[in-house]
Simulated assay, not measured.
Amino acid sequence: MAIAKTELEFMKEALPFWNALSQNQKERIEATASAFTVKKGQSLHDGSQDCLGLILVKSGHLRAYILSDTGKEITIYRLFERDACIFSAACMLKNITFDISIEAESESRVLLIPTAVYNELNESTLAVSGFTNQLISSRFSDVMWIMEQVLFTSFDRRLANFLLEQSAVEGSDTLHITQEAIANHLGSAREVVTRMLKYFQSEGMVSLFRGGVTISSRKKLEKLSEK
């Protein structure tokens, strides 16, 4: 769990407020920050009661999602290298109750500043509180965009957008993702995803294989996503 020197250097470069900290504050972070590896599919944060601290992604990528009372999931944003997540320290955010869960979409290396330490910095240093506010604003913008997509965008367009996004994430037109996982990302039922993918396949946009999807016509998907 201890943070290596190279990981500490990464943290210094990735956090825009580092140079605004006092020497004592820097030493406090160096003494308390930790690093750990999260395996694909492993959860590292589960709701507002799980108050880890500020998460910073060094490698891999994570998925933040909300879970309904009926067990339906929807992805609200994804975290990649150098991305930070403040909702994993939601207990320090006054008047905000946001039950977000975070899991690894691939094996990921994560750096962590404990909640108590980050809260001290946030309350005492303008550069840190500015970063926190910017991060909260950005994540709520992500949430509002997702809500807009769910409420006002047809499912075929949302699915086309997701497949193109997943292709960018995997760096390939062959996507190793199950229909169940796609449904969880989009807040839908697997049966709905299956029907729409079969329609995409009949239109020559994709081909399906066990445990994944291959994009057959990026042009057709892009045209659909822009409708």
Results as ranks from 00 to 15, higher is better:
Arg78Thr: 14
Glu13His: 07
Ser59Glu: 12
Asn95Trp: 07
Ile102Trp: 02
Arg139Phe: 06
Glu107Thr: 14
Asp69Trp: 08
Glu165Lys: 14
Phe140Pro: 02
Thr174Trp: 07
Ile177Leu: 04
Gln201Gly: 04
Ser88Lys: 03
Leu163Tyr: 04
Arg63Pro: 08
Asn161Gln: 12
Ser108Asn: 01
Tyr118Leu: 11
Glu13Gly: 05
Leu126Val: 14
Phe152Tyr: 02
Met147Asn: 09
Met1Gln: 11
His185Gly: 13
Ser106His: 11
Phe140Ser: 01
Ser129Asp: 04
Gln149Trp: 00
Phe140Asp: 02
Glu7Phe: 06
Ala35Gly: 07
Leu151Trp: 00
Ala168Leu: 11
Asp46Tyr: 12
Gln201Asp: 13
Phe80Met: 13
Arg63Tyr: 07
Met1Cys: 06
Ile182Val: 14
Asn161Arg: 10
Glu105His: 13
Gly187Tyr: 01
Ser138Ala: 13
Asn119Arg: 15
Ile55Ser: 06
Ala181Ser: 12
Glu148Asn: 09
Trp18Thr: 04
Gly53Cys: 08
Arg28Ser: 11
Ser202Pro: 11
Glu148Ile: 08
Ala181Phe: 05
Val38Arg: 05
Ile215Asp: 03
Gly60Lys: 09
Gly71Asn: 04
Leu52Ser: 10
Gln201Lys: 11
Phe131Met: 06
Ala104Gln: 00
His61Ser: 10
Leu175Val: 00
Leu224Pro: 10
Tyr65Ile: 02
Ser172Ile: 05
Ala20Pro: 03
Leu159Met: 08
Leu62Phe: 02
Ser59His: 09
Lys72Glu: 15
Thr125Ile: 15
Pro16Leu: 07
Val128Asp: 00
Leu126Ser: 13
Lys40Ser: 07
Cys51Met: 09
Ala168Ile: 07
Ala160Gly: 04
Gln49Gly: 15
Ile100Ser: 05
Glu13Leu: 12
Ile76Ala: 06
Val143Phe: 09
Phe162Trp: 13
Ala181Lys: 15
Thr153His: 00
Ala33Phe: 02
Ser138Glu: 15
Phe155Val: 10
Ala64Gly: 12
Glu191Phe: 09
Leu15Phe: 06
Ser101Thr: 11
Leu44Phe: 14
Leu175Thr: 00
Ser154Pro: 14
Leu163Pro: 03
Val193Ala: 02
Leu221Ile: 03
Arg28His: 09
Asp99Gly: 15
Val143Cys: 10
Ala35Tyr: 09
Gln201Ile: 01
Arg218His: 12
Leu121Val: 01
Glu148Thr: 11
Lys39Asp: 05
Gln166Pro: 00
Glu180Ile: 06
Asp173Leu: 15
Thr153Gly: 05
Asp83Ala: 12
Arg195Ile: 03
Cys91Gln: 07
Thr178Ile: 00
Asp69Thr: 10
Glu7Val: 07
Glu81Ala: 12
Ile146Gln: 08
Asp69Tyr: 08
Val206Gln: 05
Ile182Met: 14
Leu224Arg: 04
Gly212Tyr: 09
Glu170Ser: 15
Glu148Trp: 00
Ser34Gln: 12
Ala181Trp: 06
Ile146Asp: 03
Lys72Ile: 11
Leu15Gly: 04
Arg82Pro: 01
Ser22Cys: 01
Gly60Leu: 05
Trp145Asn: 14
Lys223Glu: 15
His61Phe: 14
Leu208Glu: 04
Cys85Phe: 13
Gln25Ala: 15
Glu123Arg: 15
Leu54Pro: 01
Ser34Val: 11
Ala104Arg: 02
Leu175Glu: 01
Met205Ile: 04
Val117Pro: 06
Gly212Ser: 03
